[in-house]
Design a protein around this nucleic acid. Structure first.
Length: 357
DNA sequence: TTTATTTGACCGTT
DNA sequence: AACGGTCAAATAAA
């Protein structure tokens, strides 16, 4: 993180450039017969670029937010600090020791959190949104006040085995039932160290299990998944605790998943995604590639890549924030360095189409 | 038999 | 007290 300033500057320029290019493209599209979708995509890109640029500016002044709060739990390597006892035990109800309970909830609070908005194509949505490459186990469902659909809670299947504390919540959108808001919390520590977790192609049956999933079967191979759902994926990382969020990235067509540990896609990072929406293990999809709007700035890669890979995570500092799509919001940044190291492969080739929104 | 899901209860936070 | 998140017993599926 050395040349931080330089990097930031480059990244900033990069973002602004992207924004300008997208704007130009949009201009062309406006006078042509392009689809509304294309236009919207471009608009999204423009907004996203500017949001990021703003975030970067903000970020420069808020790095200190990343204070290392000795967290445990998210660290891939040794989740336990000191005592060596499995955290999961703490969670067990049996342990109601105040101290421990407090620690746990604190820990949870500190977990990085980000949200994806996944839209499933009309013909596939019945099958459920997707498979993000991980195996999840449903542990609860709740009706949420004001929401039409219940929210489902999932945790990593390997939680007990590998002490992987990643969880996610799936909430179907009221307005657009074909959209599922998936909020991820914590990072997967299960696959990184060992590859045994592999690519279990377990059919994910997530959220919409309420609907049939007769065909839901195993189409979980990334490639399939990729194809199976098209769409708009929006990510918006948010930090829950203090600052509010922020940026929403949208991906026109994304593929979810594929982040199985070993899948290494290598390559470049999501440029934009990097700091903000990034983490999503999930959306990094190697597969699709069409056009690539991004070119990640090397800087960032180093920067972030480095960070991630390093266990900055240990400190799960802050979480990320993003600016909301609504143009009005001013992005506040609160970077989270605790992104999943694994997932963020600095080299990830982001060729997801429109990845960068 | 093992593993996953359902679902009401419990608990912490607001 | 209400709400959201998690637990865990009961149940279903593999």
């Amino acid at each position: 993180m050395e040349s931080g300033e330089n990097c930031e500057l480059k990244t900033l320029i990069n973002e602004l450039t992207h924004g300008m290019e997208s704007a130009k493209r949009l201009k062309v599209h406006l006078s042509s017969t392009s689809s509304m979708e294309t236009r919207e995509l471009l608009v999204q890109k423009i907004l996203s670029s500017y949001e990021k640029a703003l975030l970067i500016l903000n970020w420069s002044g808020s790095v200190e937010l990343a204070q290392p709060v000795g967290q445990m739990g998210i660290v891939p390597i040794s989740p336990v600090s000191g005592d060596g006892s499995p955290q999961r035990d703490f969670l067990d109800r049996g342990f109601k020791d105040h101290q421990e309970v407090t620690d746990v909830s604190k820990k949870r609070k500190m977990m990085p959190r980000w949200t994806d908005h996944v839209r499933v194509s009309s013909d596939n949505w019945m099958e459920g949104p997707h498979d993000d490459g991980y195996n999840w186990r449903k542990y609860g469902q709740k009706d949420i006040l004001g929401a039409k659909y219940p929210r489902s809670y999932y945790r990593c299947t390997y939680r007990n085995i590998k002490e992987c504390w990643a969880t996610k919540q799936v909430q179907r959108s009221d307005e657009d039932p074909s959209v599922f808001e998936i909020t991820y919390r914590g990072k997967h520590t299960c696959n990184q160290t060992n590859n045994s977790i592999p690519a279990p192609a377990s059919p994910e049956k997530q959220e919409p299990r309420q609907h049939n999933h007769n065909h839901n079967h195993k189409q979980n191979q990334p490639s399939d998944m990729l194809m199976s759902f098209r769409t708009g994926l929006r990510v918006n990382t948010e930090e829950s605790d203090n600052k509010e969020m922020a940026s929403t990235l949208s991906f026109p067509s994304t593929s979810y998943g594929c982040m199985r540990s070993e899948n290494v896609f290598s390559p470049s990072m999501l440029d934009n995604n990097n700091h903000f929406g990034s983490f999503s293990q999930s959306f990094i999809s190697p597969a699709t590639s069409e056009s690539n709007y991004f070119s990640a700035s090397p800087c960032q890669m180093n920067n972030f890549g480095g960070v991630y890979t390093m266990q900055h995570s240990e400190s799960d500092l802050t979480e990320i924030i993003s600016a909301n799509t609504s143009a009005t919001n001013s992005p506040i940044l609160d970077l989270d360095f605790s992104l999943d190291p694994v997932q963020l492969d600095p080299n990830f080739p982001f060729d997801t189409p429109g990845f960068f929104t």
